[in-house]
Structures are given as structure tokens and as C-alpha cells.
Design a protein around this nucleic acid. Structure first.
Lengths: 166, 166
DNA sequence: AACAAAAAAGTTATGATATAACATTTCTTA
DNA sequence: TAAGAAATGTTATATCATAACTTTTTTGTT
């Protein structure tokens, strides 16, 4: 179950000013509920990594995460960050952005199997949009040649509305 | 101009048996003509890297390319491979597959600005399909929020028809 | 409570991918 | 043929990621 006050942020909102405290808090609550529901353990490192990623809508590299973990008193070897990130990605609480070799918190843990991303090259924020698997040209082509899609990467780089204006 | 006998391979053909000699040869001819037309220098390393990638429809990592270059008598420092790959990618003769941190030769150098890829997890071949920039859900969403797309990454992993059968 | 099994975390080491920076050579063209 | 541009040579290092093994913590069972 989602928290009663759960209001998933939409890609529309990521690039504009919003109540980020509430945005991060509700995502964290959703993560806790999802883990409870599935019998997963959101251990201190895992929760901390998620919290770090929820601080902004920017993607963080594994070593940036690691640095912040160390500052917070956790161990500072690469596997510490990678294990937590792997767990969070595996359960859909965090997404990997291939183009950046970096990670963003998921806004709607319950929703998407095939999210797409918009990456602003100026403010470095990343918006997620819940897209369906292979809805477009690619999906059509895949069906045409009998290719069975298991996972997709869909990422657009460009400029968000605010950064175009400036 | 394309060579008169230029028959771009389509994504349909990549995953099935085809005359690969002809496929590679025509792509190389197309590359030469494209470079001639744009005043670009397809130097020996660059041509060799393209030839290596044209040997199969599998993606090669930069260090795999480097190894083969060394075997062919070229220098063996990373920048040798990366510079050639950068050149080829910049001019659309080769594409980078983000999911694999690897590179594939382009089948239709003249065509695409926003290609999409199907990566078979079994035979490791990669098919390119010429998709338009942001034709689907993502493009619609981007327009809706005023996000200006500069480039896209669209990659699907899965199983090609032949590998599903086996 | 005591134990065994499983999961997570600690630790060391290394592998894989990518680029910065500067020197030298080759090509182009005026 | 000299100057500038482009490409290549070379050294060093930055960045991203995982293998492999040990120890600790948690969980489930008796």
C-alpha cells in the first residue's frame, strides 16, 4: 500500500520548483512500504543511499554516493556503494542512467517496468516518465522480426524548459 | 553518393544468415564515399577500426578493438582506439551502445539521426533500426513539458528470433 | 536458548573503461 | 617552403565496476 499522502512526482514537476521535501519524503515512505510488502530489508546503508539520491533529481555516480556514505560514517570501499545500489535498482527504487553511468531515485516505485528519462545537460536534473515497454517504433520493429524484448534503455539528453529560457 | 551496388542491410537481416562479405564491403564503400563527400580523412587506423567492427554485427569494446589493432601492427595505447572510435562515432559511421559500453558499425551511414538498437543477449548481435528522434511516448512527453531533445539513446535487450528457437 | 543456514556487510585486490596533457609527425594550403 | 591545422605518439592517471574471501548479523528451526 502507498502512504495515504503519497503523491508521485511527475516528469512535469521535476524540472520546475516544487516542494522537494515532501517529494523526497513521500518517495522514502513508498520505499519503506514496498520493502515491507515484499519482505525486503531496507538496511541502514540502503536507506541512506536512497536518501542521498532523493536529495535532488540529479543523478549520482557510484563514487559520489560512496563519498557521501563515508561522510555519514559508513565504510568507504566501492562494494559498499555498489551493493546498496544494486539492491535498490533490482527492486526498482533507483534507476541506472546508462548515458551517465549514474543513478537516480525512482519517483514512482510502484509504477513502471520500462521508464524513459529526460536528462537536462545544463541543470543535470533527470526526469522519469513511466513509458510502456516498446510502445513505439522499436517495439513495432521488434515484433516484426520476432525479437523478444527483455529490457529497454530509453534516455533523451537535451535542455529542460527552464534551461532553454536562461 | 552511395555506391551503385549499395544495399543497406536492414535490422531484419542482421539476425539471419546473409551475405556478410557483401554487407561489410558495401558499408565500407559507403564510408569511403561519405568521407570523400565531406572532406574527412579515413586514415589507416580509422579504416581498420571500421573494418574490424564490420567483421560482425557484434559490438566490440574499445579494448577489444585496441587488441586487434595491435595485432594488425598499430600502436596499442588506449587513445589510439578511442580517437578512431570518436571520429567514427562523430560522423555516424559507428554507434556506441551505452548498455554495453561498446561499439557497432553503422549499416546505413547516410540515414539515421536517431537509431534504435536491438541487442540479443544470446548471440550478442546488435541490429540497428533507423527510428526517428522521439517519435513515441518520450517525444510526446518531452514536447508536453517543453524539453528540447538533443540526442537519444534507445536500446532493447532480449532474444532474437533464432536464439529463442534454440 | 542453541544451532544451522542465509543474508548482509567488511575487506583486499584487481579488472575494465576512459581521458588529460603534452610531444612529435604528417598533411594542407597559402 | 613555411605556417598552421590535423593527426598520431606517449605517459600517466582518472573513473567505473566486480571478484573473492572473511566476518557479522539476521532468520528460522529445534
Amino acid at each position: 500500500m502507498m502512504p495515504k499522502n503519497f503523491l508521485p512526482i511527475t516528469s512535469t514537476q521535476v524540472f520546475v520548483k516544487h516542494d522537494h521535501r515532501a517529494c523526497a519524503r513521500s518517495a522514502m515512505e513508498a520505499a519503506h512500504e514496498l520493502c515491507a510488502a515484499r519482505g525486503l530489508r531496507l538496511t541502514p546503508v540502503r536507506e541512506k543511499v536512497l536518501a542521498l539520491l532523493l536529495e535532488s533529481h540529479q543523478a549520482l555516480g557510484a563514487y559520489a554516493v560512496l563519498e557521501r556514505l563515508a561522510q555519514a560514517g559508513f565504510r568507504s570501499q566501492p562494494p559498499v556503494a555498489y551493493r546498496a545500489l544494486d539492491f535498490l535498482v533490482e527492486h526498482g527504487l533507483v534507476h541506472r542512467i546508462e548515458k551517465l553511468n549514474a543513478f537516480v531515485a525512482c519517483n514512482q516505485p510502484q509504477a513502471g517496468h520500462a521508464p524513459a528519462f529526460m536528462i537536462c545537460n545544463n541543470c543535470h536534473q533527470v526526469a522519469e516518465t513511466p513509458g510502456k515497454r516498446a510502445s513505439g517504433t522499436l517495439g513495432k520493429k521488434a515484433r516484426a522480426i520476432g525479437f523478444h524484448i527483455q529490457s529497454t534503455v530509453v534516455e533523451a539528453e537535451g535542455l529542460c524548459a527552464a534551461c532553454q529560457a536562461a
